[in-house]
Nucleic acid binder design. Structure first.
Length: 497
DNA sequence: CGCTTTTGCCGTATGGCAAAAGCGGTGCCATACT
């Protein structure tokens, strides 16, 4: 007891002295204590709760290099910049954007570094592994660890190799971090990454009391548009999620033409410059509305989004939670609204069936038989090639994909049931994700099952914070109108494919 | 799967019609090319 208390005080003193924070966010201290005691750990902590502080804090406490696996280059650069700005230790990013010389310099001087960031694809390269196996790894961190479950099977298979890599690297401690994980996803992470090793798990609740969750039933796309217009009368920082790049562009254009909102679209077909411009304009409130695909998300930290609309529904709880989580980061009241349409549900159903990789296709790929499906789908081919690089057997690939497709199907059904249910939506979100049962305060400002009220009445009651007068544009930034021109010039089909 | 959009055919100015095509979103990496 005394020991624990004195450790607590020491940690808090250090937090204050090194980082100038008064106290830990929930989970940080528990995870730190477990790791300092030599335990592997899995932390499920909400976005913005300071996950990266954990490994930053540990730098002076554990010998050896900290290897941090991150899914996106932009996230790596972000973290690198922060560590360098705060002088927390020598740090580097390893990825394909480096030239041969820089890459070799890093790999041959690994002992000089404290933090090394990279994507799983880089980490899994035999050459990289050889260098890493020759030095002491103090901490192995898998950031956004839910990617093991959500991206591993049918998008980025190298995520499935992290467990094997972890065993080869023999780090002193391994830490997995994520913001969203059900019991099943936690089990996946534990099994894939830690196998037989013991793991300390800390899980915070996913509940966000300042988010109002609303379902809005519609029978046509026209009806969506009618209701969206009501929401765009005020100057609220707004994020609209849609299912396709095409819809993103078309809806943004429609909004620009018919409302007073400053708007842009955002999807992965835009080049880096355009993406950065949209992000920056949105961050600085020079854009009111961004219409985006799921490309808009990880690593974008705008805290005052108070209206978040799912114009098209996502295909599962996991994506839904991640996406509504981008509203109300400032703890102010925010409205999240999802259009529920039978058509959209059927579209998702048929698309999922169409796009799944069939066992026969896998067999054809492994036996090098020409397969029509593969010829028509470069995406499927890329996934299979990644599996092959990772030395998966045909049977393993088929088994993994079959299981994943069953899971995806179930996830969609569960999410559809949720949207059509009449019990508290926030309660259901917690029931779905949280490990510990939690009772939600189900008041009038909770969700659309609370009481029937029209959209306009609800908007009055919620009293969302509107933006004040437009901020003065920063020098060198394009004005939104120019962004428009720019974005339409950069339409994806011209440059790619 | 079933619906919408594009293409191809006539044969020569414009449009009508049927057949065919298309049909998602997330990002690493490597390779081959400037």
């Amino acid at each position: 007891m005394t020991d624990l208390n004195s450790t607590t005080i020491k940690l808090q003193t250090e937090l204050h002295e090194r980082f100038n924070f008064q106290q830990f966010r929930p989970g940080q201290q528990e995870l730190l204590q477990a790791i300092l005691a030599g335990q592997n750990a899995l932390g499920v902590l909400p976005t913005g709760s300071g996950k990266s502080l954990i490994y930053q804090f540990l730098a002076p406490h554990l010998n050896g290099l900290f290897v941090i696996v991150s899914p996106l280059i932009s996230l790596m650069s972000d973290q690198l910049a922060r560590i360098q700005a705060a002088h927390l230790g020598k740090a580097a990013v390893l990825n394909s954007r480096l030239n041969v010389q820089d890459r070799r310099n890093i790999l041959t001087h690994l002992v000089d570094y404290k933090f090394l960031f990279m994507a799983p694809e880089t980490l899994c390269q035999p050459q990289v592994l050889r260098y890493l196996q020759n030095i002491t790894i103090g901490l192995f961190v898998v950031d956004e660890a839910h990617c093991i479950s959500s991206w591993g099977p049918d998008f980025r298979p190298d995520y499935l190799r992290l467990g094997q890599v972890q065993q080869q690297l023999q780090p002193q401690v391994t830490l997995a971090l994520t913001a969203t994980a059900t019991d099943q996803v936690c089990a996946d992470i534990v099994q894939q990454l830690f196998a037989q090793q013991s793991v300390f798990i800390y899980r915070a609740s996913v509940d966000r009391p300042n988010l109002y969750l609303r379902t809005e039933f519609v029978s046509s796309d026209e009806e969506k548009w009618q209701r969206l217009q009501l929401l765009l009368e005020q100057r609220w920082p707004t994020l609209i999620y849609v299912a396709t790049r095409k819809t993103a562009e078309e809806l943004a254009l429609k909004i620009a033409e018919t409302t007073k909102r400053q708007v842009a679209f955002y999807h992965a077909g835009l080049d880096n410059l355009a993406r950065q411009q949209v992000q920056q304009l949105f961050m600085t409130d020079q854009l009111d509305v961004v219409v985006a695909t799921s490309a808009f998300g990880m690593g974008i930290n705008k805290d005052n989004v108070c209206l978040l609309v799912h114009y098209d529904m996502p295909e599962n709880f996991e994506n839904y939670l991640q996406e509504i989580g981008r509203a109300g980061r400032d703890e102010q009241q925010a409205l999240t609204l999802i259009f529920v349409s039978q058509n959209d549900y059927q579209r998702l159903q048929t698309r999922r069936q169409l796009n799944q990789i069939r066992p026969q296709t896998v067999t054809h790929f492994y036996e090098q038989i020409l397969d029509e499906t593969l010829q028509n789908s470069s995406g499927q081919l890329a996934v299979l090639k990644a599996y092959q690089r990772a030395n998966f057997s045909e049977a393993d690939v088929i088994a993994t994909l079959t299981k994943t497709q069953e899971v995806r199907e179930l996830q969609l059904q569960q999410f559809w049931q949720f949207l059509n249910s009449t019990t508290c939506l926030r309660q259901q979100v917690c029931d779905y994700f949280d490990h510990e049962p939690k009772v939600i305060q189900h008041d009038a400002l909770c969700c659309s099952t609370s009481q029937t009220q029209s959209l306009s009445v609800l908007l009055q009651r919620l009293n969302l914070p509107t933006l004040v007068a437009a901020t003065t544009p920063t020098v060198n930034l394009l004005t939104p109108t120019q962004v428009w021109t720019q974005l339409f010039v950069n339409l994806p089909d011209k440059s790619s494919s």
